[in-house]
């Protein structure tokens, strides 16, 4: 079974250590705007949702690329970009359902997660275990909505605890 980046949406604190670690590894500087993953933050609700590349059932970035520069590994299902073929049309960036394919306007190239060649830095540095790397079957939470659901469950649970705890 091939490995994927697995996200447990209930654990993320929104610290963005993963974004820092990714840019430090791939850009040799600290620049979250060029990280190959993104933490979407809802500060009004206190929610933080990591968006990473994959696992995609269908890979729209592969479908949309007019010059077949995006190649999907049949076994691992991971998508790789062939920079030599890429014509910088940005179709993939627009098509990515997770919003994690970017155009670096400084170096003029498309940047995209490559799972760090099998040793993902984001998973190594994430302090909470919200991002891990392993076979998809071990994924506890693959559904993005689960954080929201889990969150509502927490609110319900705290309500019960407050009731039974005799809080008037």
């Amino acid at each position: 079974m091939s490995s994927q980046l697995l996200v447990d949406y209930t654990k993320c604190t929104g610290c963005r250590v993963c974004e820092l670690a990714c840019s430090a590894k791939h850009e040799a500087r600290f620049q979250p705007s060029l990280a190959r993953l993104k933490i979407v933050k809802y500060d009004d609700l206190g929610l933080d949702v990591p968006n990473v590349c994959g696992p995609c059932e269908e890979a729209p970035c592969v479908e949309v690329c007019p010059v077949y520069a995006m190649r999907r590994d049949a076994v691992s299902k991971m998508v790789y970009l062939d920079h030599d073929k890429c014509i910088l049309c940005k179709s993939c960036a627009g098509a990515c359902v997770n919003g994690v394919i970017l155009l670096d306007t400084y170096s003029m190239r498309i940047i995209k997660c490559d799972h760090c060649g099998g040793e993902p830095e984001c998973a190594r540095m994430c302090p909470t275990g919200a991002i891990t790397y392993g076979p998809t079957s071990t994924s506890k939470t693959v559904d993005r909505h689960s954080k929201i659901l889990g969150y509502l469950r927490e609110i319900e649970r705290s309500a019960e605890a407050q009731e039974s705890g005799g809080v008037e």
Binding site: T13, C15, L20, E154, V167
Partner: peptide, 13 residues
């Protein structure tokens, strides 16, 4: 009883 999630500032473990 009351806590629903943990959060952090930038770069905090």
């Amino acid at each position: 009883r009351y806590t629903v999630s943990d959060r952090a500032c930038f770069g905090c473990s």
